[in-house]
Design a protein around this nucleic acid. Sequence first.
DNA 1: CAGTGGTCTAGACCACGGA
DNA 2: CCGTGGTCTAGACCACTGC
Lengths: 245, 245
Amino acid sequence: MDLPLSVDRASPVPLYFQLSQQLESAIEQGALAPGSLLGNEIDLAGRLGLSRPTVRQAIQSLVDKGLLVRRRGIGTQVVHSQVKRPMELSSLYDDLEAAGQRPATRVLRDTVEEATAEVAAALSVPEGTQVRRVERLRLTHGEPMAYMRNHLPADLLPAEGADLESTGLYRLMRTAGVTLHSARQTVGARSAGTAEAELLGEPAGAPLLTMRRTAYDDTGRPVEYGSHLYRASRYSFEFQLLVRP
Amino acid sequence: MDLPLSVDRASPVPLYFQLSQQLESAIEQGALAPGSLLGNEIDLAGRLGLSRPTVRQAIQSLVDKGLLVRRRGIGTQVVHSQVKRPMELSSLYDDLEAAGQRPATRVLRDTVEEATAEVAAALSVPEGTQVRRVERLRLTHGEPMAYMRNHLPADLLPAEGADLESTGLYRLMRTAGVTLHSARQTVGARSAGTAEAELLGEPAGAPLLTMRRTAYDDTGRPVEYGSHLYRASRYSFEFQLLVRP
DNA sequence: CAGTGGTCTAGACCACGGA
DNA sequence: CCGTGGTCTAGACCACTGC
């Protein structure tokens, strides 16, 4: 393990974080081969001039990410398989942008209306409360990919409809000071109705992926309820699961 | 915060784990109201006769689970929304059993064959390697729910076909000493072919949910590749996401 | 300003796995 | 047996928050 590890004590970045980042990039770039042992924590601490708990904190964060495995009496090993990110709470916009698909968005609707029973339940507000309703069509390469209908508290975002054509909803929420914390999702499938089929450019009765999601901020307040339709011929959900240890 | 917290130093259960379990059950049972502050770590440590790092470890594990939120200068709060478990790497059998659905399984096939290119790639073995192929039909209340096709290394499990009718595949693997670590999944949808429709009791062309999954053990070795079909009219995937902090 | 969590140290003992 | 990670202690200083 002759890795060029080092920490900068003058940096405001926590020492354990500096170390975990260096280890993570070493793993990603193959400098730490899958299956190889990391060397014991005591040596690593001594070599970097850190205490053992600090080194353990760095290693533990990578274990939590699924990049390393620790075994008593054995050591710390790099996991063989390339573990990618677990499914993230990202907007489809970010997903597609990251995939280099250059997404475009057409805002079909951006209004304030009274919450239906379904929306009110999802957002934990009384039925009839004023909520903002956004409907968008997401396109890639000029072809429809998804129809997205969102409901959010009316006061959550400044009423700037134009931004939604160029920015994902979650990015706007973060800019507005909303810290996302968790979300509950349901993924299913059904056949397209005639209007849906026409909107998405599919034949009538084509299979569609459905996704309903309620997202919560870090105080547990529901900040978004979405009910989306994806063309099954052009989209699927891909994600990584880690087994709880 | 007058909770009846206590730790047993004679127990082999780690102190931080005892504490986190007590806090978790207090949250679940409502003894710790959502939004309430947990009290500072120093006091808590002093009251229990623990050191601060130990208390922090207990709290941190609950933060990782999404039950608590910490803010500098504020304190530790119970999250408002009921956070349930993130999506788990469970077999459908376990899913249904937990939901009280009394699942039944019909093993349609349990053979050893040569790996196709698709299976070989997923299991990281040379094409043509001998692999075990299992096909099952999962039923609830006498109705078909899913058709599951799995491929696994031929030597992974003892060749006991009968168990598959009464036990989930993952349970069998765990019994055989396989420690699951992670999995990569893809969820999509398509229309049922005539044979699939008949098998699942759906009309031809009905929408089906598709799921492909490769599971890895803790050394990173692929231990299972599954390609499954679910009746969209009777099944959907539901899961919780936590935003990485 | 006082109080909170965030980070860090330098030790200690134990449990487990392999030689 | 030795080396590994797992747990734990009793302090310390810093950064951020709200008053």
